[in-house]
């Protein structure tokens, strides 16, 4: 076998494997989108319907307009309008993520430049994330009820902020470590107080890293289920909780509407990802600062 034949077989194998992998990864997404456009009899028809026929937007109308009065034999799922859940999720996730990234940046700067946390402490911080949330959620709900935080947006924001803080600190520290010390010292000797050095020099230089961290944390909080289920759910309903209400035993399974809601949950993240993709590419490839 010649070398070029070997190379060709190598590429065939490589591309075959990658294609299979891509299909495995993309299929659930495809299935979600296609189901959201299927009429109810095709949701779990046999033989399987891969492409909706006919296409319909009735699932979207049912979910997002909460058409309770439309008597087409479909179930009335929830009195809670998904838009309220969407609003809750948006407000809670954005607030918690912003807090997490802002505090994370300050702590990360302190750790990177002034070693305010030793390496052991930094590792302990990360270890907080290794505790399964289910372990802490029972005691936490007791605290929360004592503090009156149970089933409030503030309660969720607080817990999301605290549980994502270790990620923020670790991710942002790795970006801030990349900023040459001398650039900061140049600003200092030119007369910049410390906070202005941080705001005018360090943070702009790690902008891409901040954006990448922000999106990462946003995805975590946006799609968080367990804590939202146990610490909130009646007064304050987030999208993942709303989604779970579409597969109760009494209502039967309403895949189409669930899919339509899932698409609604996914689209904002994809949209944000597209807007900031320039930063993501730079942020996720470390070492972005030219020395």
């Amino acid at each position: 076998m010649t070398k070029s034949q070997k190379n060709r077989i190598g590429s065939i194998v490589r591309y075959t494997l990658l294609t299979i992998w891509a299909v495995i990864v993309a299929f659930p997404l495809y299935w979600m989108v296609s189901t959201s456009f299927k009429p109810s009899e095709q949701w779990f028809a046999w033989p399987t319907v891969y492409i909706p026929d006919p296409w319909t937007i009735v699932n979207y109308l049912d979910v997002w307009t909460d058409r309770q009065e439309v008597a087409t034999g479909q179930y009335i799922i929830s009195a809670q309008r998904p838009w309220i859940a969407f609003g809750n999720s948006l407000m809670i996730a954005l607030t918690a993520t912003t807090l997490s990234v802002v505090y994370g940046a300050v702590i990360a700067y302190g750790v990177s430049r002034y070693r305010v946390l030793s390496e052991v402490r930094m590792f302990q911080l990360l270890m907080l994330r290794m505790i399964p949330p289910i372990v802490i959620v029972a005691p936490l709900s007791l605290y929360y009820s004592a503090l009156g935080l149970l089933d409030t947006a503030t309660g969720l924001i607080l817990i999301y902020f605290l549980t994502t803080l270790p990620y923020s600190v670790w991710m942002l520290k790795s970006f801030i470590d990349e900023v040459p010390r001398e650039v900061e010292q140049a600003a200092e000797i030119l007369g910049a107080p410390r906070w202005r050095t941080l705001v005018e020099v360090v943070l702009p230089l790690v902008r891409s890293g901040i954006v990448a961290t922000f999106l990462f944390i946003l995805i975590l909080t946006w799609s968080e289920y367990l804590l939202a289920l146990l610490l909130a759910k009646t007064e304050v309903v987030t999208l993942p909780i709303e989604l779970s209400k579409y597969q109760g035993t009494t209502e039967g399974r309403v895949y189409g509407r669930q899919a339509a809601l899932s698409v609604g949950i996914t689209v904002p993240l994809v949209f944000i990802g597209l807007i900031i993709r320039k930063h993501l590419a730079r942020g996720f490839s470390f070492g972005m600062i030219r020395r």
Partner: peptide, 16 residues
């Protein structure tokens, strides 16, 4: 910043 000095670094240390 309060010492009234100016410094030029080996790495230039410009704000990129």
């Amino acid at each position: 910043r309060d010492r009234g000095l100016g410094m030029v670094f080996q790495s230039h240390a410009l704000f990129p």
